[in-house]
Structures are given as C-alpha cells and as structure tokens.
Computed example of a mutant assay.
Amino acid sequence: MLQKLTKENSTVPARSVFLTCSGFETRAISAAKKFAEFGTQFDKSILATYNDPKNSSAELAFQPILRGLTEHPQASCVVPLEGATSFRKRLKAELTDVDHVYCDITGFNTPAMFEALSGIMDSGKSMNVVYTEASEYSPSRQEFEEFFCEGREEDLFSVEEYEMSSFAYSKACEVDFISGFEGVVSPGYPYFLIAFLPFKRSRLGAVLQQIEASRRLLISGDPVRTDLKWRAWALEKINQDILDHNASQHKKLSTLDLKQTLDFLEETIRNMSIQYRYNIVVAPLGSKIQKVACWLFGCRNPRVSVLQSNPVEVFADSYSHGAQDTFISSDLRALFKGDF
C-alpha cells in the first residue's frame, strides 16, 4: 500500500498533478524537493496555503520548487485554504484537466486534509497519497523522560506538568465534527467511540467530555522505525488512566499501514454488529496515515461521525524536526466503496 519514494518509482503518468500544502514543519517541503531531485515532471502543481502570516516564508520556499516540477512555470498555482467548501470547489475546478493526483498530506492539518482528499474524490481522478516522516517528533525521548520513566509511579503533579509543557501543542483543545463528516445520529441509540491515542491526553479528554460513549475502543500507534519504538510505550504511559478503564478495548496498529487501520475499523463495526446498535464516532488523533484511513472509513460509511480535537495553540518550533523517508501510496480509488 505504501512504498518508499525513490528515483525508480518517482516517474508519474501523463496528465498528473502534484498537490501539496505549505505547512510549518521542515518536512512539509521534503517530498517536493525529492521529486525535483529525481527529475519528476508533472503537468501541474498546486500549493494549498493557510491564511496565516507565519506561513508566508514557507509559501515562498515552495513556489520555485513547484514551478520546477512542471514544464511551464504558469502551470503552478496557489489555492488558499479559506473556508472548507470554497477550497474543495476551487480544488475540483483545478483538477478538470488532469487524470492523476499525487497529494502530499504532510503539511495539511486534519480538517484541511479531509477537504483536500474529498475534493480529489469528487473529481473522480486517481489518487496517490504522499507522506514524509520527521526525523524527530516532539517530545524527544530525553524530554519525555524528564516527566516519565519506565517503572516509576507518576504523581498528578508530573502528569499535569507534562500536559502544560510546550511540547507540540497546547493542553487546551476545541472539539468539533469535521466538515462533511458529521455522520448520522440516531436518537435514543448509545455512542460507540473509536479514538486514536494522542501525545497529550487532554486532547482525548476533551473528546470524552463531549461524547458520552457507552463503549470505547482505543487505538495506539505502533511506530515502524526502530528509533521511534519507545513512543508506543510513551503513548500508553500518557493515557494510562484512560486505558486502565478500557483494558479490554485497546488495539495497537502501525502508524504507517493505511490498509491495516482501515481493515481493522471495518472489521470492528461489522463483526460486532456495531453499526446496527450504536451511533459511531471516530476521533483520528493518531498518525497522519491513520487519519487517511479514518477519512476512507468515513467515506465508505457515511453514517459514521468523525471529529477532531484541535489544540488552541501549536508550538511550531518544537512540533517536529527534520525530514526522513517519503512514502507514496498506490491509487486509493479501489478503497472508496463500501456498504454500511
């Protein structure tokens, strides 16, 4: 499903477009640089931009690279991320003269990524997802172990101190349903919540306060890279009290296996007849690839509600550092269809 981007697999078919986003992380521009290095040529490139002055330097860095990815510089355009509906319509219009879309999700936040992928789906074009991992994610192991150490009991003060720290994002969060993925709520039916564990439990705590679920399924990410394996333990440590109350409903899934996550979500609601007995809510607070799986799951099952717990503040300087491998998926259209 996902393979590492190399020069050997970097050739794209005719009438292809590269869609990316000027995110604040260093790795956001990495895929564009790699395609340029490999000599990949697209018919068009599209840069989605945030309406945020802090991102202006990132936008300027992207533009010459994207112009170099096309034969004609005028084939490169900018689409502002202003309003979910208008962005989706504008994106669909930009895709009328192409057949294949390579969407780099690295710089998109969750709501914008859902809109971008949905816009591509609306266009009926083939869709390959591109994603670059960071060299290091916040918090680092050393930073994390200042608050938590394996085998040591933590007090409430150390847990709260970690939650208040300036790692990645703020403790304060706002919970809302993702536009277009509000699902269908049947009055009188209980809620079944499927939540991916975040690196600050306050994000999940905000979801639990809003959704009074009679059943919960918690999913933690299992990193593929050896140097990130410690984060699987760290994730469970952060959310320990929530896991203790849901011991029988906890599953580990790879952070980079889109198909594994999608298949697990589908099997869960079908094997347990969940779709006939509950209002299903999904909170994709895990890895970016797991979020793509949640987007596919929502597309295939329109009765499912998908919500996001958005931090009030993101600490851009400490969110992640550097860039490592870039991955590219096969065409996602085969996974669109589903029954509910």
Rank of each mutant, 00 (worst) to 15 (best):
L95M: 13
Y50K: 06
V98T: 10
K92D: 13
D43A: 08
T70Q: 03
E94Y: 07
R90K: 15
I65V: 10
H100F: 12
V98N: 05
E94D: 12
K92W: 08
L95V: 10
K89R: 15
F87H: 08
I65N: 03
K89A: 15
Y50N: 10
V79R: 03
T70M: 02
L91K: 04
E71F: 01
R67V: 07
E94W: 07
S76H: 08
L69D: 02
S76N: 09
A84C: 05
K92M: 14
S76K: 04
A93R: 12
S45V: 07
C77Q: 14
D43H: 08
Q63V: 11
D43M: 02
C77P: 04
P73F: 02
C77D: 09
P80I: 04
S56Q: 14
D43F: 03
K44H: 05
K54G: 11
E94K: 12
V78L: 06
I46H: 02
P64Q: 11
D97E: 15
D99Q: 15
T96R: 14
T70D: 01
T96W: 03
S45E: 11
S56P: 01
F62Q: 00
F62K: 00
V79H: 03
E82A: 08
L66A: 03
A61P: 00
A58R: 12
H100R: 05
K89S: 15
T49R: 10
R67I: 07
T70A: 07
P64M: 12
A48M: 05
D99H: 15
P73I: 05
V78M: 09
Q74A: 14
L47S: 06
H100E: 13
E94C: 09
A58M: 12
K89C: 13
R90T: 15
R90P: 01
L69Y: 01
E94T: 06
L69K: 02
V78E: 09
P80G: 04
E71V: 02
F87W: 11
I46P: 00
H72E: 06
A93N: 14
A84F: 09
A75N: 07
A48S: 11
L95G: 08
N51P: 06
S57R: 09
E59Y: 01
F42N: 05
A75R: 04
D43T: 06
E71T: 04
L66Q: 04
S45R: 10
K92T: 14
T49Y: 10
I65R: 01
L81E: 01
Q74Y: 09
D52Y: 10
T85M: 10
Q74K: 15
G83E: 12
N51E: 15
A84G: 05
T70K: 01
R88W: 04
T49C: 14
L69Q: 02
T49L: 13
G83H: 07
E59P: 00
L66H: 00
Y50D: 08
A58V: 11
L91I: 03
N55D: 11
L91N: 01
P53I: 13
A48C: 13
